[in-house]
Nucleic acid binder design. Structure first.
Length: 294
DNA sequence: AAGAACTCCTGTTGGC
DNA sequence: TGCCAACAGGAGTTCT
């Protein structure tokens, strides 16, 4: 569900109440999410100060005192809700319920010294959390293989062409591969390919010439990915079926989707007249305009 | 070893 | 209206 812009938006929302704050107590309501939670998870977090919030790929990072990082992944349906200090719920959990989903899926609850309460809710439990020593973060198994951040200079036409060179997968699969570029998901890949007129099923090798140098459209694709992510972050992240900002407000970037979930609807490019088509690649939906994507 | 298939889990949606 | 299959924004693991 959440891709880089949504994760960034959630992280910023969390930073407003967590950064510089101290964790008073953590309620861990089940032993695992997608993976087992760390040993003595709640006990190890209580009393810790959150020095800084950050993000890497689709991971939200809470840098703790004592040189450990709490890494959190939202999976498909993970969400955080914030109950600010001094909000008195009529019944316990009342405020959280506004946007937090079914209370049965409240798995981890952070009680801050400030009085703020941050609740992690995840129906499908594809999300996970881990406590990792700061020094070993980049070499941790979840992070070691990650490709460059798409908004950093490390992601550019040259590195993308290099990653695509000789690959047999299609463009869709290449861009979803977190080892190639970290943070894209189904929606933004589909949207970026539309912008540059490449169809999702085209071979990834089209991004490189015979020497592994960038092909003509490679630079445009890099630029489109950056633009789309920046626009989405600016808009506060997408809001789809089960996504909410941490404060319960709906996002609105879905209004800007040009092809995603628009099967059968007209292509929005001026004068195109094509009809958006849904296809399935590796069990996942893709959308493209057959007239302007080749 | 790359690439594709399968898997985890629950909620929602669309077709009949 | 009710029922049930299909599908959902992720990604690690297992196969071929």
């Amino acid at each position: 569900m959440p891709e880089l812009p949504e994760v960034e938006t959630v992280m910023r929302g969390l930073a407003s109440v967590l950064e510089g704050g101290r964790i008073r107590k953590v309620e861990q309501r089940r032993p695992d999410l997608r993976f087992p939670l760390p040993e003595r998870f709640a006990a190890r977090l209580s009393g810790r100060r959150i020095e800084r919030m950050g993000r890497r790929a689709k991971y939200i990072l809470a840098h703790l005192d004592g040189d450990e990082v709490l890494a959190m992944h939202l999976g498909m349906t993970g969400r955080f809700t914030i109950t600010p200090p001094r909000v008195k719920a009529k019944t316990p959990g009342d405020v959280v319920r506004v946007a937090g989903g079914d209370p049965r899926h409240d798995h981890v609850v952070f009680h801050m010294a400030s009085g703020a309460i941050v609740t992690f809710n995840d129906a499908r439990r594809f999300g996970y959390m881990d406590l990792i020593p700061s020094a070993g973060l980049e070499s941790h198994k979840h992070f070691a293989g990650l490709g460059p951040e798409p908004l950093s200079n490390a992601f550019n036409a040259e590195t993308l062409a290099e990653a695509a060179n000789g690959r047999k997968v299609d463009l869709k699969a290449l861009l979803l591969d977190q080892r190639v570029v970290a943070g894209l998901g189904n929606i933004y890949v589909v949207e970026a390919l539309f912008r540059v007129g490449l169809k999702p099923s085209a071979p990834a090798s089209r991004l490189a010439d015979r020497r592994g140098r960038p092909a003509p459209k490679t630079q445009a694709l890099v630029a489109a990915i950056r633009d789309i992510l920046n626009e989405a972050i600016a808009a506060g992240g997408s809001s789809l079926r089960d996504y909410r900002h941490t404060d319960g407000e709906l996002g609105y970037f879905q209004k800007a989707h040009q092809v995603y979930d628009r099967a059968g609807e007209p292509c929005l490019r001026q004068g195109c007249g094509g009809v958006i088509r849904r296809t399935v690649q590796a069990g996942r939906s893709s959308f493209h305009c057959p007239r302007c994507q080749r």
